[in-house]
Design a binder for these strands. Structure first.
Length: 274
DNA sequence: CCCCAGGCGACTC
DNA sequence: GAGTCGCATGGG
């Protein structure tokens, strides 16, 4: 096992990374976190500084986005409005992970109109039932494995009414070149193509673009973001997703995705306190 | 009993 | 194009 030592802790906080909402499979440990992705395990221990344990340095550098300067991004985002400054202060150690596209697509279809503990529970059950046994954990099912799962199987996992959507979308992913093609498209076209899949609307598409395709010129607008928009910029209580998303992308451009993660993480942390 | 959760799809007009 | 409504499921 090799290790990467993180020296600038302003730019890397494993709690922020795990709990900011970008992924669902992680576990808190004695002095850090373990993240599970596809059939991989990424372990981070914090002593004085964070240490990433990996058997593939290049892969870990890419996964944790270590070549992006987050201090610069935060500096660029500051001064826009008060809530964002507080959010950056609160979650300054967030990094946006380069996650597996298929896993992100399936996970965020399950996330729609759902709560995080239940999303995690369903995804964990999916891995246990249909993923490879990797010893002390289970892999996320491969596309080949996913293609064998029926609608009633998904229902038994607790996916609810999203079960049919999952089967339909998995069918497209496994029977066409959708995944390889969508990667090549500019953000706007990729978004449109994603929304054609069952269970994917504007919000889920933006999460997929941000977490699975590395596009930071998107701004997923969920219920928390809409609340924040209403409080800070007016409009209706339940404003239209595309309207809110476009507002913030116009404001933050290529840094929209980062801004969204700081804001989402911060707003959720205030749950019940405002 | 109600409302809510990282919304979406179908159906109106 | 915008406005409603139902949707599985579990927790508060």
């Amino acid at each position: 096992m090799k290790k990467i030592e993180i020296k600038n802790t302003n730019e890397f906080n494993i709690k922020d990374i795990c709990e900011c909402g970008q992924l669902f499979r992680y576990k808190k440990t004695q002095n850090g976190y373990i993240i599970y992705e596809t059939d991989q395990k990424h372990e981070v221990c914090v002593h004085k500084t964070p240490l990433i344990y990996t058997n593939n340095i290049k892969r870990a550098e890419n996964y944790f986005d270590l070549n992006t300067n987050y201090d610069t991004i935060k500096l660029n985002l500051k001064g826009s409005f008060d809530c964002l400054d507080k959010a950056i202060e609160f979650g300054g150690g967030i990094r946006i992970l380069k996650q597996d596209l298929t896993e992100v697509i399936i996970s965020f279809i399950i996330s729609a109109n759902n709560n995080i503990p239940r999303i995690q529970k369903t995804i964990e059950a999916l891995c246990q039932k249909f993923g490879k046994n990797c010893g002390d954990y289970f892999a996320f099912p491969t596309l080949e494995q996913l293609a064998k799962i029926s609608q009633s199987d998904f229902e038994k996992l607790g996916a609810g009414y999203r079960s049919g959507q999952l089967v339909k979308t998995i069918d497209v992913l496994s029977q066409t070149n959708f995944l390889s093609e969508v990667k090549l498209l500019p953000t706007k076209e990729a978004r449109k193509k994603l929304i054609e899949l069952s269970g994917i609307g504007p919000k889920v598409a933006d999460c997929i673009l941000l977490f699975g395709l590395g596009r930071t010129d998107v701004f997923p607008a969920d219920v928390w973001i809409k609340k924040l928009y209403h409080q800070n910029f007016g409009g209706k209580q339940d404003e239209q997703t595309d309207k809110v998303s476009k507002f913030f992308v116009d404001l933050f451009k290529e840094n929209s995705g980062y801004a969204q993660q700081y804001l989402y993480y911060y707003k959720r942390s205030l749950k019940g306190e405002e």
